[in-house]
């Protein structure tokens, strides 16, 4: 595994109008990264290609969230997730991620994941950060199973799935939502 940078604790402010886009194989190895991805992460395209996506994993992130994400997309379900990523410089950035799942037209087997990420708003980060901190603490003192259970309980209390919980928190509304959709299709 590649040596990850040491976190600086400094946040990179993202342009809320831009998407960080990548395509990976089913194991999470990067096949494609767009310009904004390289700009924000500080890795150039050649460094990213062929590298597992977890090169960007921030040590503050609870494993339970990645388990949730992988479980979902592996079963062909898109998921909106909030993630804190680690740039090459050690700085971090918060994003909301969305997936396109590509399947082999003949076999129907999942072939690739395309992830579209946008800046997570302050409001979302303020809500999520304490939850992730708790999950991470549980993981460190116990294990991921325990933090996963905690997360499940937390969501049950709210009567929501994670996906729904995040969508409620993060979804752009009204005109903004229309523009984001249009932008994804924009050439």
């Amino acid at each position: 595994m590649t040596q990850r940078p040491t976190p600086t604790g400094k946040e990179i402010r993202l342009d809320s109008k831009k998407h960080i886009v990548s395509k990976t194989d089913t194991k999470g190895n990067i096949l494609y990264a767009n310009d904004y991805f390289t700009e924000v992460s500080g890795y150039n395209k050649s460094e990213l290609i062929g590298t597992p996506h977890n090169i960007l994993r921030h040590p503050d992130m609870p494993k339970a969230i990645f388990k949730l994400m992988w479980d979902s997309i592996k079963s062909n379900q898109n998921i909106t997730a909030v993630v804190k990523n680690l740039a090459k410089s050690g700085d971090h950035y918060w994003i909301v991620t969305d997936f396109d799942i590509q399947k082999d037209p003949n076999t129907g087997a999942i072939k690739n994941y395309i992830a579209y990420r946008q800046a997570a708003s302050k409001k979302v980060v303020e809500k999520i950060e304490p939850l992730y901190k708790t999950l991470k603490e549980i993981e460190d003192k116990h294990d991921m199973e325990a933090s996963f259970e905690y997360l499940t309980g937390y969501l049950q209390e709210k009567n929501m799935g994670y996906h729904q919980f995040i969508e409620e928190l993060a979804k752009p509304t009204g005109m903004a939502a229309m523009f984001f959709e249009a932008m994804k299709k924009l050439f």
Binding site: S22, K23, I49, N112
Partner: peptide, 27 residues
Amino acid sequence: QVKEVEEKHSLEAGINFLHGFLDEKRL
């Protein structure tokens, strides 16, 4: 960009990269 990926990695990586570029645009 494709040429750089091709040279630092492989022709296959170049093809993957180009497809990724198109997928991003859903074209």
